[in-house]
């Protein structure tokens, strides 16, 4: 899957999500999940770790699943819809560099939006690492106490505030660097896109099979 182009994998996800939208048939979701898990396995990805992320979608879908008990849509279907869509998207992002996905979006979304998305992707890891370091430092220095809620809240406010200031300064530095390098809008992303090849057959096969199954059943 890593060698397939972003286009074929985005098409696969679009077909699977279309199947998720139109189908209320449990076997369709089970077939889709089987295909997706096999694709994760042959891509040499840590399947369990990827599925943990999908568990996040599962937890949040539970609210809607519980609310749907006795309704026309069974809770199991709601959970399967959430998990199938989540796993297909996770397969896409774990096998495709984000810039390649943005390269496709570039054709339909404004340039400034794509640039901001690239900055978001890059900054997310910087901010999360900085905040987690800060949290560790606070814990090591005894700034966190399970019983002192008011103090914890105050500390949390300082951590988040510090993270916010750091993010703001990061944006100012980045703005200056981009200005110096002659940024006039439009970061180059499409030039690194992987070309269409025989490796695209697998994602296209998965997407088409699941979609046809959803339509036929």
């Amino acid at each position: 899957m890593h060698r397939a182009s972003a286009l074929s994998k985005v098409l696969m996800v679009a077909l699977i999500i279309s199947a998720v939208v139109i189908s209320i048939d449990i076997p369709v979701f089970l077939v889709a999940l089987t295909f997706l898990i096999v694709a994760l396995l042959i891509s040499d990805l840590p399947v369990l770790r990827v599925l943990v992320f999908a568990g996040y979608a599962l937890v949040f879908s539970l609210i809607f699943a519980i609310s749907s008990v006795g309704g026309t849509l069974s809770p199991v279907i709601i959970i399967l819809k959430a998990v199938t869509a989540a796993v297909s998207l996770l397969l896409l992002i774990t096998t495709t560099p984000y810039p390649q996905i943005f390269g496709l979006f570039q054709k339909v979304l404004p340039m400034i939006l794509i640039d901001a998305m690239l900055v978001t992707y890059r900054s997310f890891f910087i901010i999360i690492e900085q905040i987690s370091r800060l949290l560790t430092a606070i814990r090591v220095r005894g700034g966190y106490s399970p019983v002192k809620i008011a103090r914890n809240l105050n500390t949390m406010g300082r951590i988040l505030g510090h993270g916010f200031i750091h993010a703001w300064e990061l944006s100012e530095n980045m703005q200056n660097a981009m200005y110096v390098r002659g940024y006039r809008g439009g970061l180059p992303v499409s030039s690194i896109a992987r070309p269409v090849s025989r490796y695209d057959l697998l994602p296209l096969f998965i997407g088409a099979t699941v979609f046809i199954l959803a339509v036929v059943r």
Binding site: A116, Y121, G163, L170
Partner: peptide, 25 residues
Amino acid sequence: FSRTKSVDARRKVPLLGIMAALMLV
């Protein structure tokens, strides 16, 4: 986008991206 002047928006791309990243965190 129309309310944000194009030059101003270009200048604020890093800020926009980083604020979105902070929200994402």
